[in-house]
Amino acid sequence: DIIVVALYDYEAIHHEDLSFQKGDQMVVLEESGEWWKARSLATRKEGYIPSNYVARVD
C-alpha cells in the first residue's frame, strides 16, 4: 500500500473530496493526475485528495 501523510489541512470542497488535517495518514487507492482517491487511516472515510497536499511515507 502507498501511505501518505498530510502536509497541510484540507477542507473538502465537493462531496466526493476527503477532508484531512496536517499529519493525518491516508492509504492511496488510486493515483490519477492531481487528485488521488484515498482512505483515511483514522476515520476509514474515502474520497479524493489534492496530491500536492501530501507526501509519501517511506
Rank of each mutant, 00 (worst) to 15 (best):
D58R: 07
G33R: 08
K37G: 03
G33P: 09
R39M: 09
S19R: 07
A12S: 14
D58T: 07
E31Y: 03
T43R: 06
L7A: 03
Y48R: 15
Y10H: 06
R56V: 10
D9K: 07
A42D: 15
V28R: 01
A12E: 04
P50V: 00
R44G: 14
S32R: 07
M26E: 00
I3D: 00
V54T: 07
R56H: 09
S32N: 03
Y53L: 14
S32E: 14
Y8L: 08
P50H: 15
F20R: 00
T43E: 10
D58M: 00
V54N: 01
F20A: 02
Y48H: 10
V4I: 07
V57N: 09
Y53K: 06
V28K: 04
V28Q: 01
L41A: 10
W35E: 09
Y53S: 11
D9A: 09
W35K: 15
K45R: 10
H14E: 11
R39Q: 13
K37V: 11
D9G: 07
L41W: 06
Y53A: 11
W35I: 12
K45Q: 13
T43G: 08
G33T: 08
K45F: 13
G47E: 00
D58C: 12
Y8F: 14
P50M: 09
S19L: 01
E16I: 13
I3Q: 06
V57I: 13
V5T: 11
V57S: 08
E46Q: 12
V5I: 11
S32M: 15
K45V: 12
D58V: 02
A38M: 02
Q25L: 06
S32W: 06
A55L: 09
H15F: 06
L7C: 07
V4R: 02
I2P: 04
H15E: 05
R56N: 14
V28P: 01
D9H: 01
D9Y: 02
K37P: 10
I3P: 03
V28A: 07
S32P: 07
V4F: 12
V54W: 01
Q21V: 14
M26N: 02
Y53I: 07
S40E: 09
G33C: 03
S40T: 08
E16G: 10
D9V: 01
T43A: 06
D58W: 02
V54K: 01
V54A: 04
L41Y: 09
M26P: 00
V4K: 01
A38T: 07
I49H: 00
A55P: 01
S40N: 13
H14S: 09
H15S: 14
V4D: 00
A12W: 00
H15Q: 12
Y10T: 02
E11D: 06
A6P: 01
E46G: 05
D24K: 04
M26V: 01
H14N: 13
G33L: 10
R56E: 13
Y53F: 15
E11R: 13
Y8N: 15
K22C: 03
E46T: 09
D9E: 10
H15P: 15
E30Y: 15
D17R: 13
D58A: 04
V27P: 03
V28W: 02
A42S: 06
A42Y: 09
V27M: 14
Y48G: 03
T43S: 14
A12H: 02
L7V: 06
D17T: 05
R56D: 06
M26F: 14
A12C: 07
Y10F: 13
E30G: 12
L41T: 07
V28Y: 03
R56F: 08
A55H: 12
M26Q: 01
R56Y: 08
A55Q: 13
L41M: 13
V54L: 03
S32L: 06
V27W: 06
E30A: 15
E30D: 12
Y48E: 04
Y48M: 15
E46H: 12
K22Q: 11
V4G: 02
R44C: 06
R56M: 07
L7F: 02
I3T: 10
Q25V: 04
Q21M: 04
V5R: 11
A12I: 02
Y53G: 08
D9P: 12
K37E: 05
L41P: 14
V28F: 04
V4A: 09
F20L: 04
R44D: 15
D58I: 04
V5S: 11
I49N: 00
T43Q: 14
R39V: 06
S40P: 05
E46F: 05
I2H: 03
N52I: 09
G33S: 09
A55D: 11
S40G: 08
A42G: 14
A55T: 12
D1A: 03
S51E: 09
V27D: 02
T43I: 05
R56L: 08
D9I: 00
F20H: 01
G33H: 03
A38I: 02
Y48K: 13
G23Y: 03
H14V: 08
A6I: 00
V57R: 11
V57Y: 08
Q25A: 04
E11L: 09
I3S: 05
K45N: 09
K37R: 10
E11A: 08
Y48C: 10
E11M: 03
S32K: 15
W35A: 12
E11K: 13
Y10K: 02
S19G: 12
D58N: 11
W35S: 13
K45P: 01
Y8A: 07
L41Q: 08
A6R: 00
E30W: 06
I3A: 04
G23C: 03
V57M: 11
G23V: 00
E46D: 05
H14C: 06
R39A: 07
A12G: 12
S32I: 07
Y10W: 07
